[in-house]
Simulated scan of single mutants.
Amino acid sequence: MLTRKQYELLMFIHERVRESGVPPSFDEMKDALDLKSKSGIHRLITALEERGFLRRMEKRARALEIVKLPDNMAETLRPATTRSQAQRMSPSRHGRSGSVTNLDARGAGSPRRSISEGEGSVNVPLVGRIAAGTPIEALQNKVADVAVPSGMIGRGEYYALEVTGDSMINAGILDGDTVIIQEADTANSGEIIVALVDNNEATLKRLRRRGDSIALEAANPAYETRLFGADRVRVQGKLVGLIRRY
């Protein structure tokens, strides 16, 4: 089962090739899917390759070949063709469904779509709680599995954490959210990370590098930025998305 964005991209490429004989550019695909960066297109194309729908041909510009089309996909997934249609499909904050937010590690993003029955998903281990405030505890062992839309997951290893606290609310991360983390031991300044402080306390914060020091920055003016020596902070992963229940 393809995610909605994977389906939209596959159909866009298919229609463009059928009309002109030439696949669209990455900029055209980005604009057609209303994405902010081409990195999202790269992830979607990789996912479609892995599922056997697309093939990239080396050493050729715009070298994308449609290998196959999904069976009966048009009956089960109808792509949103405008921003307003996509917004109408997003769940209400007062509803009882769940929503998925795709974020890059800088925390930019908003709820894009609801999790629907039958949508392709993968299980990611929920390994404990993480404080979006004063650090409270280190990562624990797996306590459960969380079903995550497959379109959110790329290469690498992932885990999930339940958020406690409100220090990242201005980055769209609320108390009770489940954040999806890609395992990593390095990160760029400005990215939202899971940081392990003094090998004892874990926290979800924005990383800022200040010379030989590391600042863990909240996204809530009620919380102060905390400054540590570089040897006191270890990167445990980078934020890629979150799941919120209503």
Rank of each mutant, 00 (worst) to 15 (best):
A86W: 00
G107E: 06
E65N: 05
A63H: 06
G107L: 07
V100S: 06
R106H: 09
E75W: 09
D71C: 01
A105D: 04
M89T: 11
A86G: 02
R93Q: 09
A86M: 06
T76Y: 15
G107Y: 04
T82S: 14
N72P: 00
T81W: 14
V100A: 09
G109M: 10
K68I: 03
D104C: 05
T81C: 07
G95D: 08
R93W: 08
R93V: 12
S97T: 10
Q87V: 08
N102S: 13
S99L: 09
A108M: 11
E75F: 12
S90P: 00
R62F: 06
G109R: 08
G109S: 09
T76K: 10
E75L: 15
L103Y: 05
I66Q: 01
T82D: 02
A108E: 14
T81G: 09
T101E: 04
P79G: 02
T101F: 01
R88W: 04
S84T: 14
M73N: 01
V100F: 08
P79Q: 04
S97H: 05
P70T: 04
R106C: 10
P91N: 05
D104A: 03
R78T: 15
L103V: 03
G109H: 07
M73I: 15
S99G: 02
D104Y: 01
R88T: 03
Q85N: 03
V100N: 02
L77D: 01
P91V: 07
S99D: 11
S110V: 09
A61Y: 04
P79I: 05
N102A: 05
R96E: 13
E65G: 03
A80E: 09
P91H: 03
P91F: 02
I66A: 03
R93N: 08
N72V: 04
T101S: 08
R96W: 07
S90L: 08
A86K: 07
K68N: 10
A74T: 10
R78D: 11
G98C: 07
A105H: 00
G98Q: 12
G98R: 12
N102Y: 12
R83K: 15
R96F: 14
A61H: 08
P79N: 06
M89I: 13
T82Q: 04
A63R: 09
R62L: 12
L103S: 01
A63L: 10
N72G: 02
L69N: 01
P70M: 03
N102M: 09
Q87F: 07
S97V: 06
G98L: 11
Q87A: 11
R88E: 10
A74C: 05
T76L: 13
L103Q: 03
D104I: 02
H94G: 08
S97D: 08
R88K: 10
N72F: 09
P91Y: 00
R93P: 05
A61G: 06
R93L: 14
I66G: 04
H94I: 12
E65M: 10
L64E: 04
R88I: 06
V67L: 13
L69T: 05
A108N: 14
R93K: 11
Q85A: 12
G98A: 14
S99Q: 08
D71E: 15
A105K: 00
T82Y: 03
V67K: 11
E65H: 08
K68D: 13
Q87P: 00
S90A: 15
S92I: 01
S90F: 03
L69P: 01
